Amino acid sequence: GSMEQGFLPKGWEVRHAPNGRPFFIDHNTKTTTWEDPRLKIPA
C-alpha cells in the first residue's frame, strides 16, 4: 500500500507482479529489481 511506498528511496516505486510478488522500479536509472532497495546498505 501507500505506507510502504513512503519508505522507499527517492525515485523508487513498488509494484506487484501478476503473481503478487512485489518488485521495485528505480525511475532514476529506469530499471527494475526484485531486491528491496531498503535492504541494501549504502556504501
Rank of each mutant, 00 (worst) to 15 (best):
G1Y: 11
G1L: 13
G1D: 12
G1W: 09
S2A: 14
M3N: 11
M3G: 11
M3W: 11
M3P: 13
M3K: 14
E4C: 15
E4D: 12
E4L: 14
Q5G: 13
Q5M: 15
Q5S: 10
Q5T: 13
F7I: 14
F7A: 15
F7D: 15
F7N: 14
L8V: 04
L8D: 00
P9H: 05
P9Q: 04
P9E: 04
P9T: 04
K10C: 15
K10P: 13
G11W: 03
G11E: 00
G11R: 01
G11L: 01
W12I: 01
W12Y: 03
W12G: 00
E13C: 06
V14I: 15
V14K: 07
R15D: 03
H16A: 08
A17V: 05
A17I: 05
P18T: 08
P18M: 09
P18V: 08
N19Y: 04
N19V: 01
N19W: 06
G20M: 03
G20V: 01
R21E: 08
R21M: 09
R21Q: 09
P22T: 08
P22I: 14
F23H: 03
F24N: 01
I25D: 03
I25M: 06
I25R: 00
D26A: 02
H27F: 07
T29Y: 04
K30E: 09
K30R: 09
T31E: 06
T31I: 08
T31H: 07
T31L: 08
T31C: 13
T32L: 15
T32Y: 15
T32G: 06
T32W: 15
T33V: 06
T33H: 08
W34L: 05
W34I: 03
W34D: 04
W34E: 03
E35N: 10
D36P: 07
D36W: 04
D36M: 01
P37L: 02
P37R: 03
P37E: 02
P37V: 03
R38K: 00
R38S: 04
R38W: 05
R38G: 05
L39H: 10
K40P: 13
K40V: 11
K40L: 13
K40Q: 14
K40N: 12
K40W: 14
K40T: 12
I41M: 12
I41H: 13
I41T: 12
I41C: 15
P42V: 13
P42Q: 12
P42T: 11
P42F: 10
P42K: 10
A43C: 14
A43V: 12
A43Y: 13
A43N: 11
A43L: 12
